[in-house]
Design a protein around this nucleic acid. Structure first.
Lengths: 372, 372
DNA sequence: TCAAGATGATAATGCGCATTATTAGTGGAT
DNA sequence: ATCCACTAATAATGCGCATTATCATCTTGA
């Protein structure tokens, strides 16, 4: 086993050429004015084969090249969310893609945490430089930091839809609007008309999208909106019972198991007298849910994998651009709008919490709007 | 927001000193012959404060220093094991510790996979250099590779007990022997005498340790060993019933839920007629286990965290050694045997699969050994 | 026969830092 | 005045690579 790892100079010596020649052969990107004969090239390749030379990623990066390391930065510390569960699925997808792409993953765990949020500021910027590019995820992102990344044209991809005012903020998101609409359709097709929505009305993108999907589908079907405040589970269950709702869309921040239990405690039965559809995986890690939930799932693994692939392509493109300032484009990997802003489908989940509307509730109810 | 990040030279210019002076101040490790006055030092520190300078980890590393990046190398690809579940818990602990230590984590996902095993050979060695040190985990480790790491004195820590023939192979393991013994004690204390062991007889360390624990505790209690082959769950259940065992230790590679179901299908009831104790978290990810298992758990998070802390200390020590060849040792962080080879306790799990021995089975049975 | 390309490379430079070697100044003893 | 020890720092070097500038040797056309 070699103690001292081989360098380009070692390879060069063996092939009887200069270090730069080895570098040129490896990158097979000949700047104008530099030429390598086939004979020399093959001597170099042979020396590389014999020595088992592998580039030092650190040196590559310092010299302004790429090092096949892609970063992951999470805005929230993973732990308050209950284990690794929120990011876990994303990471599985990311890791899978990383393996395929042959890149290493750098987790930026060192960033200082300021009241529960990680910040890129201070040391963060420097540390990002250790990777060719970076995936960002989390709800609590800092717009200013994202702008800065765009300004410095540091390659990155956000996991989760993020509006960027007229700028190219690359992301891979999940189509909550369409998925939520589809849930309403499922219910309506089964005869439900009194369909409520339970979830907090926060301003994060997933929530906005779920609400938008709910609103749009209900409007298309000519049904009145019915928001239920389930801040307090028991009170929420009571309200649902009083308003004689036959179906609820349940946002993932709600403890859906507790809600179902509370509803049954109020004499209702899931799904016979009330259908419940989960809008994405629950945030709470449910140790052992007794129920098989219906609704939709967020394709987290796929999001992670797709985001990494996109990031890799962006990095490729950037380096291709700097290499060929105005030269010819050898096989241009053009990334268009559809690449930069990907929305993935959320597959439906067929569990046991969805049933046809109870016949007693099919009474027309007019256009009463219980609340805004 | 700064476009060009500050370098030591920038700081030096602002403080009116040379770049090397800045470096010395930052590392506050003055080689013999170099001296910095307090006045200069504070001017430099002030300039650092103003510019918000942060070191470039890449350059640090290339120049032979440390970069506060610690690596993680897993011998198995994470996916065949069913999601992220095997490594997940370790990673949570690792990440937690990384956050506290202020280091970034580099996941070596790029290593080529040769028939299901990752290898450090070839590119791997080079890539390790990107980190100050590395955590290793997985069952399928390659002894030769570990030896090489020891030879080159690359700092690493294995997660999981690994015997090293007279060498200092640092690890953080879980004490399966003691935990398994304790399970036997629990059963014996409840009157069980016909205690079986279900699990494959492979040669990996955890399995060896579990078997050892079982053997020792049974011998201490004067009870005969009873290994049950549950390669086939149904057949295994039948054998357990025929041999009138009242308790089973179940290794994690066994699908314990399936076994319990099979036993109940044979007319036994868990735990009334048969107690089941799980020896660590099951490998299979059980989607929604109906049972609350008794047994013990492997403190994976803690193992991950402890391993990272140990690794960090080893890295510190190595760099301290190279720095002070024969100088005085400023606050020597001596690592002794107990640090290098840590065994953690596996807490007992109090579920609902453990009960007192059924009275019909308390009949003395002599010293019949059903099998070796 | 000689300048003007073309060909095939190499030397030199710098990335940002840690580290080693070297220098400049200063006061005290000879 | 001269040598020495001591203080306080700087200059120089190299890590391994990518990249830029430069050079030497051949053709080829007039």
């Amino acid at each position: 086993m070699p103690r001292h790892r081989f360098t380009q100079s070692d390879v060069a010596a063996m092939a009887g050429v200069s270090q730069s020649t080895v570098s040129f052969v490896l990158n097979d990107n000949l700047p104008p004015g530099v030429r390598i004969s086939d004979e020399t090239r093959s001597r170099v390749l042979e020396a590389i084969r014999i020595t088992g030379y592998a580039a030092n990623p650190i040196a590559q990066r310092l010299a302004g090249g790429r090092n096949q390391i892609l970063g992951v930065f999470t805005y929230e510390t993973t732990f308050p969310r209950g284990g690794h569960d929120f990011y876990g699925a994303f990471l599985v997808g990311i890791e899978h893609a990383a393996e395929k792409l042959g890149v290493d993953m750098l987790l930026f765990t060192s960033a200082r945490v300021v009241d529960g949020r990680r910040r890129l500021s201070r040391d963060g910027w420097q540390r990002l430089g250790a990777a060719d590019g970076c995936l960002l995820l989390g709800q609590q992102e800092d717009r200013g930091e994202l702008e800065h990344l765009l300004d410095t044209s540091y390659p990155f991809v956000f996991i989760g839809k993020r509006e960027s005012e007229g700028r190219r903020l690359p992301y891979v998101g999940a189509d909550y609007v369409a998925a939520t609409r589809r849930q309403v359709e499922r219910l309506a097709d089964l005869g439900h008309t009194r369909i409520g929505y339970a979830g907090q009305q926060s301003a994060d993108q997933p929530t906005l999208d779920r609400l938008e999907g709910y609103r749009r589908a209900m409007r298309t079907r000519g049904l009145p909106l019915r928001y239920v405040d389930v801040h307090d589970i028991a009170a929420g269950a009571e309200e649902i019972a009083e308003r004689r709702l036959t179906a609820m869309l349940v946002a993932p921040e709600i403890d859906s198991d507790a809600l179902a239990d509370a509803l049954e405690a109020h004499g209702m039965s899931v799904p016979n007298s009330i259908s419940l559809l989960l809008l994405g995986q629950p945030n709470q890690l449910q140790h052992r849910s007794r129920r098989a939930w219906s609704g939709f799932v967020v394709p987290r693994e796929e999001m992670g994998a797709r985001a990494l692939v996109l990031l890799s392509r962006i990095v490729d493109q950037e380096s291709a651009e700097t290499r060929a300032p105005e030269g010819r484009m050898p096989n241009p990997p053009i990334l268009d709008e559809a690449d930069f802003h990907q929305m993935l489908d959320c597959p439906d989940l067929d569990g046991e919490t969805l049933a046809v509307a109870p016949t007693t509730a099919t009474t027309p109810e007019g256009t009463i709007r219980d609340n805004a």
